[in-house]
């Protein structure tokens, strides 16, 4: 089994075999991070550029740690403004970076499709670290890895995803991944946060959180962007929290060993009640740990070599 691709732009394009390969490779990488010397020489001499057009501490850190543990050199480029503002096209930016001979580019962008545009003009592998509300493949992979490592499988599980589906790339990538792997995915959120036609992605949509959570093996809460309030997609954080926050009461109808997940950072008391976020069912920190392993796996599978 090989990865038959140059880039990882989304989960949508990945086959079940490819997802399994990535997850299994990631499982093998977990051990490296537990060593005293957390570094292997695999990508020695390789240069990895992380290009972040949107602020992100944890995803960027996770990629950098992954790259460094594989002995790659990492260059971080942050740009709070789009290339447009600087009078440069995105393709110009990409070609400029390519001229510095990187071996792999990680890109996060607030605009959906930006990594695809860059990948289309570059010879080097590109990993999408989140594009707009489109996809966040490494997050979905680490989520699947976390679920699989605890539940032993993905097929047949009921996974509830709760919150602002419309604006969530985490939701989309997880929907693609989990449905491919045979899990049944249930969504819950206010109708203003559920995009039209999302059922066609093979999910069940609920407007009451209780219905989505019932007997769920996994409940994933999404981060609410508090500035969305201004766009009238929900009345107030208080109202949202009262009806869509995960708490001791509503989680009771889920499976006893339900996993509580969140892509972070958690708005405590809004998406998840504080006690639940710290309960034994919460695997939020394991998600972060597995994130490094998943990213190491992808860097290993994509970077270097002449393939």
């Amino acid at each position: 089994m090989k990865l038959h691709r140059k880039d990882i732009l989304g989960i949508k394009e990945l086959s079940v075999d490819e997802i399994n390969l990535i997850l299994e490779t990631a499982d093998s990488f977990v051990e490296v991070s537990t060593r005293e010397i957390k570094k292997v020489p695999t990508l020695r001499g390789k240069t990895i550029i992380t290009l972040f057009y949107e602020p992100s501490t944890r995803t960027r850190t996770s990629f950098e740690i992954a790259a460094k543990r594989l002995s790659a050199d990492t260059i971080s480029i942050s740009s709070s403004t789009s290339s447009v503002v600087k009078g440069e096209t995105l393709i110009d930016t990409a070609k400029n970076l390519e001229s510095m001979n990187p071996d792999l580019i990680v890109i996060r962008h607030s605009a959906a499709g930006a990594p695809h545009m860059i990948a289309g003009v570059l010879n080097e592998p590109v990993i999408n670290a989140g594009d707009g509300a489109h996809e966040h493949p490494t997050q979905a992979l680490l989520d699947m890895m976390t679920i699989r490592s605890i539940k032993g499988k993905l097929a047949g599980l009921k996974v509830a995803i709760v919150g602002d589906i419309s604006h969530s790339r985490v939701a989309r990538s997880n929907i693609y991944g989990l449905t491919k792997m045979g899990a049944s995915v249930h969504l819950a959120g206010p109708a203003t946060m559920i995009p039209y036609g999302i059922e066609n992605m093979g999910v069940v949509v609920h407007t009451q959180i209780e219905e989505a959570i019932r007997d769920a093996d996994v409940v994933m809460a999404l981060r609410i962007q508090t500035e969305r309030e201004k766009q009238c997609i929900f009345p107030s954080l208080r109202e949202y929290a009262r009806h869509f926050s995960l708490n001791r009461r509503n989680i009771g109808s889920a499976a006893k060993d339900v996993l509580i997940m969140h892509p972070g950072p958690v708005n405590r008391g809004i998406e998840i009640s504080p006690d639940l976020a710290e309960s034994a069912n919460s695997v939020i920190l394991q998600q972060v740990t597995n994130g490094v392993a998943v990213r190491m796996a992808l860097l290993y599978l994509l970077a270097g070599g002449n393939a």
């Binding site: 089994m1 090989k2 990865l3 390969l21 299994e24 490779t25 499982d27 093998s28 990488f29 051990e31 490296v32 292997v40 020489p41 695999t42 594989l70 796996a297 290993y300 599978l301 270097g304 070599g305 002449n306 393939a307």
Partner: peptide, 18 residues
């Protein structure tokens, strides 16, 4: 992860657990 022929390998060898 310590192999010296990764550069020329046709595809990444499958990684096993240590």
């Amino acid at each position: 992860l310590y192999r010296d022929d990764l550069k020329s390998a046709q595809s990444r060898p499958v990684l096993g657990k240590t």
